[in-house]
Design a protein around this nucleic acid. Sequence first.
DNA 1: TAAAACAAGTGACATAGATCACATTAAGGT
DNA 2: ACCTTAATGTGATCTATGTCACTTGTTTTA
Lengths: 188, 188
Amino acid sequence: MQEILKNQIDKIVPLTDAEFQVVLSYFSIGKYKKHQYILQQGNSVPYVHFVVKGLLRSFYLDKSGKSHILQFAMEDWWITDNQGFYNEQNATLNIDCLEDAQTYYISLENRTKLCSELLPKIEFFFLQKMTAGSIALQNRVLSLMSKNSEERYTQFIQLYPNLIQRLSKTLVASYLGISRETLSRLSP
Amino acid sequence: MQEILKNQIDKIVPLTDAEFQVVLSYFSIGKYKKHQYILQQGNSVPYVHFVVKGLLRSFYLDKSGKSHILQFAMEDWWITDNQGFYNEQNATLNIDCLEDAQTYYISLENRTKLCSELLPKIEFFFLQKMTAGSIALQNRVLSLMSKNSEERYTQFIQLYPNLIQRLSKTLVASYLGISRETLSRLSP
DNA sequence: TAAAACAAGTGACATAGATCACATTAAGGT
DNA sequence: ACCTTAATGTGATCTATGTCACTTGTTTTA
């Protein structure tokens, strides 16, 4: 179970088993049920979660009550409300479980300690992860600006073939920024 | 002139003058004219630029020939094609100057050296910058999904009151993902 | 195993925003 | 100062997508 996190880190900064045990000691384990909220708009954002098992999403509820999915997170992905977490502000996002889930989570304080005092090279790992996340978001912005619904849907299927099998069309539509009716009229 | 970069770094990790001179020695100075390209789609992406003076933009040209602005960068901002730069791939973006400009630029190799060998704490600076950039992109995604043209325009004015004075409506429209005619029909 | 809640398809209609086409005015380059 | 090129506004359409409404089938769950 720990292997999944160790493997991810090892791809970027190889750690000894002892080092990894130090890393892990800064995380806690959380178990959640389908439909359970991990974070609600307005609350503080104490943790980033690394998903060990299950499927979660982060989403924004606009003033008219429509929800817009910012991110999905399945095994081996990270999820939080970045703005809330890193700036220590209240959440503008909600996070809930689309399937029963288990995560390793860490506080900002522990993350900082881990990076600066104990294992500086883990900071490089987080920098790489943040960079990759930022690149993905850039592509998403360009996709929203330059592609129509069908092109965005096709791109999503290509990008996340494993994820899509676990999602309803309604969820995919809410991620792509289109209505479920429009998505329904696209697919073969 | 160097002060602008030193001040930015100091806000996150205070440096001695000597340390800052080391940092600076890893950068080069570039001067560019209005309309000049700094990066073209398909080329390699050798540098990140810190803007000392002037105004640049990065944009994506879609297959139908329409351009979509991903980012503006004026004094004190950073700009590059992240995907190309960090993954050492060819650029999918173009960068050109909207005004005569001057930048400090650094290669990936030098950036890595600087972080890992010479001044580890500068890595923390880059991590903070990347985090802030990522948060801005998240908000942009949510804005594109949940707001209409007028709301996005209003938000842009609030967010970048100084930048907007230096931009034509056509450029703002291309950043917001709407046509210049629509933007023209919005403003008072 | 019945009832309730969810997922998905589809018709009819509404609409934000795109596109095309000009006109006017303002900058820049030589 | 003159000519070219850019910037802006505005009318007249067109269209992709949203919204509303209803149906049917499929999971949940009590």
